[in-house]
Simulated scan of single mutants.
Amino acid sequence: MPHEVQGVVSRAKGEPVSLEAVVVPDPGPGEAVVSVKACGVCHTDLHYREGGINDEFPFLLGHEAAGYVEQVGEGVTDLEPGDFVILNWRAVCGTCRACKRGKPWYCFSTFNASQAMTLADGTKLSPALGIGAFLEKTLVHAGQCTKVSPEAEPAVAGLLGCGVMAGIGAAINTGAVTRGDTVAVIGCGGVGDAAIAGARLAGARTIVAVDMDDRKLDWAKDFGATHTVNSRGKSEDEVVEAIQDLTESFGADVVIDAVGRPETWRTAFYGRDLAGTVVLVGVPTPDMRLDGVPLVDFFSRGGSLKSSWYGDCLPSRDFPMLVDLYLQGRLPLDKFVTERIGPAGVEGAFASMHRGEVLRSVVEFG
């Protein structure tokens, strides 16, 4: 029988979210119902509320989640009730051109549940990133469930579902940071600090954290930054010079822009060494334009300019590995959890996020 649970819903652009009754149907073919235990409050959820993704209101928010499989639908063979899973929004199809080329982390046709979750009056909800997990139970495609060790705490494991994976993957998968590299990370929120943690895990010898907030720079040190640069009041050229000063005057081998603004990208471009790599993982808004970079500089500086989608991750490969590293004490995922709240606290968590007071607020369910 369908379940009726309380969920966090965004009804209109810019309006505060509300807790409302949500109807979750039994799983159909290829689907699963997951009992959500924890879900991080991500900037993407705020983008949905602000109309920055699309206008398909009302939205059922939440997507950085972990929990236990409760029911599976017809044809699901690799999940069973009781499995501990992290939800992901890259359920690879196996048949698109990226998958056929052996690059499933670029899958262009990922799966979502076919059935809709609804409000009590039957209004269809648009689940954030095809998940919608600010509620006690959610309906997803079975491919969106990645099994990991049940020894991991849900509030910690769930963060791999989006922002933390994006940052770690930007360093390890997209940037290909390796032993002895020098790395600079611009923007030290959750994604930037995850990139710092990833660079440290990969063996970078120098990791420069750049931000305008001393509190965030202190957080960056906890994740492995060896040096910090407060960019407040500094020009782009001054920040570039500061990065160069900390990397033997050359610039960093890999610079990761976790902000996604023209000025931070230009800083990343000029803050790298010759033939170095720029990784853009911060998400720009559609109106932003890149100006002031002569075309000859793209040629003469060489190297790679990359965008990182979801940290170029393959959930089935990366989630279990990163959870195991966390359980071994080699990856401090627990440090991303700033506060634990109930679903009624999501709107307040958005305000804390906007003020830069948290890395992650995590909604917990009983």
Rank of each mutant, 00 (worst) to 15 (best):
I256P: 00
E238K: 14
G169R: 02
V293P: 05
C145T: 12
G260R: 02
R97T: 10
V9I: 14
R232K: 15
T146G: 00
V278W: 02
L305Q: 03
A12L: 10
P315R: 11
G143V: 09
V362H: 08
W309Q: 08
R266E: 07
D55Q: 14
G276K: 03
H47D: 11
G329E: 09
F269M: 02
L135G: 08
K216R: 15
T44A: 02
A170R: 00
Y310A: 15
V254T: 14
G122F: 04
D78P: 10
G167L: 07
A344T: 11
R261E: 13
V24Q: 04
T285W: 06
G292I: 10
I196V: 13
C96I: 13
V240G: 00
F111P: 02
V85M: 04
E70W: 07
A98G: 00
D78M: 13
G189T: 06
T247M: 07
L322S: 09
L79P: 07
V259D: 04
K147I: 15
A155T: 04
D45P: 01
F59N: 01
L46F: 12
L201M: 14
G167A: 11
S18T: 13
V69S: 05
V362S: 06
R101S: 15
R360E: 02
T228D: 02
Y270K: 08
F336D: 03
P104Y: 00
P150R: 09
V34T: 09
L314F: 10
V72I: 14
P2S: 15
L46Q: 09
V229C: 05
A12G: 12
L359T: 00
E4W: 05
Y270N: 01
L79T: 01
V337W: 00
A38Y: 07
F298R: 01
K234L: 15
D297P: 02
H63T: 03
W219I: 03
G7T: 09
K137W: 01
A199Q: 09
R11F: 13
C96A: 13
A349D: 06
T174Y: 08
E241I: 01
V293N: 10
A349L: 05
V177I: 15
D121Y: 10
H47P: 05
K37Q: 15
A202C: 14
C162E: 08
K216I: 07
D218T: 15
G73V: 11
G163L: 06
G198F: 07
P27H: 03
F111L: 08
A166P: 12
L333N: 12
D222A: 14
G342K: 11
V281Q: 08
T228R: 03
C39L: 12
V323N: 07
S235E: 02
T174H: 04
P25W: 01
D273L: 10
L327C: 14
S304M: 10
D214C: 10
E74F: 04
E238R: 12
A204R: 03
N173K: 13
D193R: 04
T228P: 01
G158T: 08
V210S: 07
R330T: 05
D181Q: 14
V33E: 00
A32N: 05
P343Q: 03
F111A: 12
H47N: 07
M212D: 13
P27W: 06
A252C: 02
R330W: 05
V239R: 11
C145K: 04
